[in-house]
Structures are given as structure tokens and as C-alpha cells.
Design a protein around this nucleic acid. Structure first.
Lengths: 129, 129
DNA sequence: TGAATTACTTGCATTTTGAAAGTAACCATG
DNA sequence: CATGGTTACTTTCAAAATGCAAGTAATTCA
């Protein structure tokens, strides 16, 4: 056995590269994912919370991103009431570890994109402490 | 004059929101842009340098991203020889300011995505000092 | 019974991406 | 001076992702 290379097993591990930057971008590197994560850091919890953000994420995209974030282990969906059963989304430790990425994006934007304003990326009453 | 609102002028400033995170993502929030920026931080300079990276960026996407990065003031294209005229791409100060975003993505990937390896996001001989 | 709310799913047109091939300028070789 | 090679793209077109709108399901409220 093992005469031929085990293609199918290898394919499961195929990535664009082994670079941590590239692999992170596979998960959070699109226009909407980090916006949802920003909302979670700001304390938003429900589907409609995310929908109400000023960026106006399309509802199908939001549903898709929440699913992907769950299967990536960044977000978990937890029931917080019954009848009707409602769920809240919250960051896992893996998700919370993205805070530095978020902060770096925020700082870069504030310093390099005129017209941006910190209050849109901070919890109300949070002095960035 | 200025009886009617200056729609055309306003439209130039229309954005998804005023959030610095969202606005940063409009520029660097896709699967390829930060890969090119990573390469620039690693010392790559020419079009073919970027093409040779292990991720295998499609050439039309590369050309497009380099154009966008130039018009965003993140990268500049500078001739470094004549006959034939050849250009190198390099980061502007605004581009260099993205180092924290890059580092945060790298650290998150290293800590949270098994199989990633630091050497793919560092200059050879650079001890991260 | 009917309207409202929350949390989605579905359908479909538009936009972006990606693979491959093509082009243009120049140099090097025979 | 014709042929081939290199660099740096552009073009074409199919496939995938996005975005808008409408539809659905469960439940509560009037």
C-alpha cells in the first residue's frame, strides 16, 4: 500500500499556503465578517442587532457569515429564551482573540482615512481602557 | 447658488458608515490585498515577485489590487531602470502603518489556526526585532 | 382571527473572481 | 534580423459570491 500518494487525505489539508496571515484572511478576509465581529465586541447579540448596524448587511450574507463564524469556532449560538426559542450570538475565546486585529484596523482607519470616527467602533461608555 | 443640495459632491463621500473599521475594510478587507501587503513587508518589490508567492494570486487580480493600492495611497510605483523601463512597488508611510494589522493577523493565525507557520510571514533573517 | 416580530431562506440579477490565453516592449542569441 | 525569452500586464469568459427583494415559520399580541 501507499504506492500512490494519498491525494484525498492531502486535499483536506490543502490551503493557499501555510502563512498565518493568509489563513486568517481565509476566515476573516472579506468585507463583512469583521463588521459582524466588531458588532459582537460592541455588545450586540441578536440577528436583528447585526441587521440594524449602519452598514446595512444583506440578510442572506449575515446568515451565511454567522454560520461560517460558528463553524470556525469564533462565535457560538446560545439559546437565551424559550417560546419562542431565541438565540444570542457571542464570541468564543478564539473570537475574543481577534480584538487586536480589530483594534489595529480601527487605529489605522482613524489615522489614515479622513472622516472616520472612533465612536462607531466602541462600546458606548467604553473609554478604551 | 447652492439652493439644491450638491448631490454629486456628497456622493463622493458616501460610505457604508463612518466607522474606521468598516472603512479600513473597504480598502484592505478582501482575500488578496493583505497578501500583497504582506509581500511588500517581506521585501518583495516587482510584479513577478508577487506572482511567485505560494498563494498563487491570479494575475488579473494582482494588477487590479496594485492599482487600487496605488490610488489609496498605500503603495507607490517607482521606475528603477530604463530600457526596458521597469517599476518597483513600495509601501508609502500610509502603507507601512498597516504593520500592526498585519502583525495582529499573523499572531491570531499562529495562535488559532493549526498548521500555520511564522516563517511564511517574515523576512528571512528577520528575528521579529 | 389578524397583524406584528424575529430570524431566517429562497430566487434571481449583478458583480467579482479566477483560469487561461493574448499582447507589448525589450533584450539576447545565432 | 528572425527567433525565442522575460517582464508586466490585459482580455476573455465561465463560475462563484454578492445583494436586493420577497417569502416562510414560529410565536405573541390585540
Amino acid at each position: 500500500m501507499s504506492q500512490r500518494p494519498k491525494k484525498s487525505a492531502e486535499i483536506e489539508f490543502l490551503r493557499r499556503s501555510l502563512c498565518p496571515v493568509t489563513n486568517s484572511l481565509e476566515i476573516v478576509g472579506d468585507k463583512w465578517t469583521m463588521v459582524v465581529i466588531r458588532d459582537l465586541f460592541m455588545g450586540k447579540r441578536t440577528y436583528s442587532d447585526f441587521q440594524q448596524s449602519p452598514e446595512g448587511i444583506p440578510t442572506n450574507i449575515l446568515a451565511d457569515r454567522l454560520k461560517r463564524l460558528q463553524s470556525a469556532g469564533i462565535v457560538e449560538k446560545i439559546p437565551y429564551q424559550e417560546k419562542p426559542t431565541r438565540y444570542e450570538y457571542k464570541l468564543t475565546p478564539k473570537g475574543k482573540a481577534l480584538s487586536k486585529v480589530l483594534r489595529a484596523l480601527k487605529e489605522w482607519g482613524l489615522n489614515n482615512i479622513p472622516g472616520t470616527s472612533a465612536e462607531f467602533a466602541e462600546k458606548k461608555g467604553d473609554g478604551d481602557s
